[in-house]
Write a protein that binds this DNA or RNA. Structure first.
Length: 374
DNA sequence: CATCCGTGGTA
DNA sequence: TTACCAAGGAT
């Protein structure tokens, strides 16, 4: 049987009918940290165990931004390329914005890339090139919300901060068998996480919670037999730990259809730059209309347009069937202009196209390998 | 509080 | 295969 962690809280005193708040024993953090000392994942942005070198706030920050809603496997190669190309926050602040956006292409959530450079410049211009070392000051930087500010404060600067991400939410709601459904449970989860966060090694504690959530306390089929906290876990005691966290129903994802145009001429293809705000904001793209709009988009030039395939793509809040139309002209009907440029087809992979358009471009390149009429 | 914002892996 | 979801933030 698990140790009984229930104690009365001030909140319960105010509303006796409510279920008692659960508090973990103080032994939880030492138990988890001991497990972490032997089982921490080796990740590119972590200092090796036993290495006394203080963490580089720039690398901690960069990794945390990249890891927002993004898996470790997806982030790793991007982190390697970014740190090789821009080794310091000063270097990143001086980066060409277009090059940075292109380097981010494929990772998704492109507002992160725009905020990344804005944050680097704020650190250089407003903080003398050094990241602020308090949670409050970090929270004021572009792209740093409650989670990231707490994570950087704890991991990079050793501050005690309550770090709550999806892993911590899962682990915590299971430890306490929290019955309140998300997202309404967030304030309570944070309060619960606060009670188990230690004063020392808060950064290691946060990373330990996330490693535990990633490798043992997983969304589906948690490996409770390997969990160092199993004896403290109320969800495990219920026999169905997967039932936590409790979640509300989601809306169905609508489907949209759209058109993109592959216009080839003189070994090049016409690319446009999307508006800074909104979907794929600031990224290069193939010409085409706004999907879901009533009117069909006009082709970028008069030509013999032919359908060359359809790209199926799934975004967060809708799925898309993108019909790709292609045409080739013997000469460019117009030169580069603001918001549009001719890009060599041979190096289209270096254009920094987001995944949707990279797939459309694969269809186009197969149709017009040299940009000449077939 | 709800909505918008990418992508690829997993069962 | 479909559905879910991952080191969230901005508005």
């Amino acid at each position: 049987m698990p140790v009984d962690m229930r104690v009365a809280s001030p909140e319960d005193a105010a509303s006796p009918s409510r279920a008692p708040l659960l508090l973990a024993p103080l032994q939880l953090a030492p138990l988890l940290l001991a497990w972490y000392d032997g089982h921490a994942r080796a990740l590119p942005w972590r200092t090796p165990p036993g290495d006394a070198t203080p963490p580089d706030p720039y690398r901690v920050w960069l990794s945390e931004i990249m890891l927002q809603q993004t898996t470790v496997a997806a982030v790793a190669p991007y982190f390697a390329r970014f740190t090789a190309r821009w080794p310091t926050v000063a270097a990143l602040a001086a980066a060409d914005e277009g090059e940075l956006m292109a380097a981010w292409a494929g990772l998704g959530y492109y507002a992160r890339a725009r905020n990344l450079i804005a944050c680097a410049r704020a650190v250089v211009d407003g903080h003398g090139g050094r990241f602020p070392d308090t949670e409050t000051a970090l929270r004021a930087l572009p792209g740093l919300g409650a989670y990231t500010a707490a994570a950087v404060a704890a991991i990079a600067f050793g501050r005690r901060a309550v770090v709550v991400d999806a892993n911590v939410e899962r682990v915590t709601t299971r430890l306490f068998a929290c019955p309140v459904p998300l997202p309404a449970a967030r304030p309570r989860i944070r309060a619960l996480a606060d009670t188990i966060t230690p004063g020392e090694r808060a950064g290691d504690f946060a990373q330990a919670m996330m490693d535990l959530g990633a490798s043992i306390c997983t969304t589906r089929k948690p490996r409770c037999l390997l969990c160092p906290l199993a004896t403290l876990c109320h969800a495990r005691a219920t026999g169905d730990p997967e039932a936590f966290p409790v979640k509300c129903m989601k809306k169905p994802r609508p489907h949209r259809r759209g058109i993109a145009y592959w216009l080839a001429a003189e070994d090049a293809v016409l690319l446009v730059r999307r508006p800074d705000k909104g979907l794929l904001g600031g990224m290069r793209a193939l010409p085409g209309g706004d999907w879901g709009a009533i009117a069909e988009p006009a082709p970028p030039a008069d030509a013999d347009w032919r359908p060359i395939g359809t790209v199926e793509h799934v975004f967060t809040h809708f799925s898309l069937s993108l019909d790709v139309m292609a045409a080739a002209l013997p000469m460019r009907p117009f030169a580069d202009r603001p918001g549009a440029q001719w890009w060599p087809i041979e190096t289209i992979d270096e254009a920094g196209l987001p995944t949707l358009y990279a797939r459309a471009a694969m269809l186009g390149r197969a149709t017009h390998p040299e940009g000449l009429p077939a």
